[in-house]
Structure formats: structure tokens, C-alpha cells
């Protein structure tokens, strides 16, 4: 409806990419356990894919060999929490209101419960995961996550979890 003014021009793609990547790096970089597992994130627009590069230290059963069930749980939980944190920050990253370089990155959501279905054993290969927020409220959120390896159609684990969202300035109902 409004006429385009010069300052409404879309930002150059490199500027916005750099800001998104910096925000994502700041979000993931704050979790030492994600570094312990070696989890990285790939981003296409707002879509995130968590990547778990294979490492011998992730093996739970050396006979098969198979990834440790706890590694798979941790990987899916990281994918779910980062997806939630990312969706929480997205608007501020887009508007430029959030500067990932400064120290006021909001807190991450807290896991209330997490349920993992182990569909197949995790092979000694890289793993991938995507999470989908199925319900996002001011206080509570529900997230589903799925992990696969060589074949996208053959997930090796899926999970569902509930999360407590951090209180943020402007929440309205106070201090918490």
C-alpha cells in the first residue's frame, strides 16, 4: 500500500546473510556441549539443518558399530533448542535490532521433557537433523525433530519435546 521509499529498499544480500550467520553462530557457539559433540548448523534462509559429523568418540556400541543413544538424544535436543532459539530471534535479526556481536543474546529455552524413538541404529556416518516447532506459545513450546543419515526417507531417530521459553523484555507479565 505504501509507496516505496529509498530506505525501504531490500538490504544487499551479503549484509543480511552475514547478520543471519552471525546470529546463528552466536546462538550455537554459546553451547559448549554442542562443541563437545561437534554439532554444526547449515542454514538456507530461515531453514536450519543440524549436522553431526561422525567421530569415533560418538560410538556407543563398538561391535556394530553404532552411535551412542545418548549422542542421538543430545543431537536431537540441540537441533530442537536451536530451532526454537532461532525462531525467537528471527524477527530481531531481520530488523537489525539484535546485534549478535554484543553480549545481550537472550537465554535459550529450557527442556521440560524429551522423548526419543530409536528407529534404527546410528551408523558410523555423518548425521543430519531438522526440528519443527509444532506449538509456540509465550511460555511453552512443543518441538518435533527427526534425524537421518544417508537417506532422508530413512530416519534413524525421531523425538518430541516440550520447552519452557525464556522470559524476555516486553513479555508484559513481569519479572520471573
Amino acid at each position: 500500500m505504501s509507496a516505496k521509499r529509498p530506505q525501504d529498499r531490500p538490504e544487499p544480500v551479503q549484509v543480511i546473510k552475514q547478520r543471519r550467520d552471525a546470529a546463528l553462530a552466536a546462538l550455537v557457539g554459546r553451547v559448549p556441549y554442542a562443541q563437545f559433540l561437534g554439532v554444526r548448523f547449515d542454514r538456507r534462509g530461515d531453514e536450519l539443518t543440524a549436522i553431526l559429523p561422525f567421530d569415533d568418540r560418538l560410538i556407543g556400541n563398538p561391535m556394530l558399530p553404532a552411535l551412542h543413544g545418548g549422542v542421538i538424544a543430545g543431537f536431537l535436543e540441540i537441533a530442537a533448542v536451536v530451532e526454537l532459539g532461532w525462531s525467537m530471534l528471527w524477527d530481531e535479526v531481520e530488523s537489525g535490532a539484535l546485534d549478535p556481536a554484543d553480549d545481550r543474546m537472550p537465554r535459550l529455552p529450557k527442556t521440560i521433557d524429551f522423548t526419543i524413538d530409536y528407529l534404527r541404529s546410528g551408523l558410523p556416518r555423518d548425521g543430519y537433523a531438522r526440528a519443527r516447532i509444532t506449538r509456540s506459545g509465550r511460555r511453552y513450546a512443543s518441538v518435533q525433530a527427526e534425524a537421518w543419515q544417508d537417506n532422508r526417507d530413512r530416519p534413524f531417530a525421531q523425538a518430541t519435546g516440550h520447552f519452557l521459553m525464556p522470559r524476555r523484555p516486553g513479555d508484559g507479565d513481569g519479572d520471573g
Partner: peptide
């Protein structure tokens, strides 16, 4: 271990590390 922390502001262990502990113990 500091490596297993989920939130460096608090130093609390990540749920994933606790999951590994619980899964191993159950197994």
C-alpha cells in the same frame, strides 16, 4: 565437566549429557 555445559551463563550441564548417562545406565 565444563565441556558438557549447556548454558555457560549458569554452568549447568546440557540435557544431552544427562541423556547419555541415563541411556547408558538403563542399557
Amino acid at each position: 565437566s565444563a565441556e558438557l555445559v549447556g548454558d555457560p551463563d549458569t554452568g549447568v550441564l546440557h540435557g544431552g549429557a544427562v541423556s547419555s548417562l541415563l541411556d547408558s545406565t538403563c542399557g
